[in-house]
């Protein structure tokens, strides 16, 4: 199964979850996603997702001045973003339980088939 396609479906949730813990700038968020195991999504997709979530009113931004380089635009989750994230969290738990149950049955059947 192509996990990158699965990830695209839940990338919004993953980005919101990363930002729930701590604000971050573009590449910082990409890095934290990769550290958490999501490494099959391109940088550009994450940057686009950030822009979309911001346009959708789920994130706010602020600029942090930098002496070494250009000022960094930081993203932070807002109340609306938290509300959406909590909703998605519940959906994910239900979905994951359903799929695990289903796949667990399927895996057993498959094993049974092989043992015949």
């Amino acid at each position: 199964m192509d996990s990158s396609q699965l990830l695209k479906g839940v990338l919004d949730t993953a980005v919101l979850a990363v930002l729930e813990n701590e604000d971050g700038y573009g590449y910082d968020i990409v890095r934290r996603l990769r550290e958490s195991g999501i490494d099959e999504i391109g940088d550009a997709t994450v940057y686009g997702t950030l822009r979309r979530l911001y346009a959708g009113g789920l994130l706010r931004t602020y600029v942090v001045p930098s002496e070494d380089g250009p000022h960094r635009k930081y993203y932070a989750i807002n109340d609306e973003g938290l509300r959406v994230l909590n909703g998605q969290r519940k959906t994910w738990v239900t979905f994951a339980e359903t799929m695990s149950r289903l796949l667990g049955v399927a895996a057993t059947d498959s094993n049974k088939g092989k043992s015949k």
């Binding site: 573009g26 590449y27 940057y47 911001y54 250009p70 960094r72």
Partner: peptide, 13 residues
């Protein structure tokens, strides 16, 4: 909006 800070991000990477 899409390319803001992109250069800095790529340099960091």
């Amino acid at each position: 909006e899409l390319t803001e800070n992109l250069e800095a991000d790529l340099r960091e990477r």
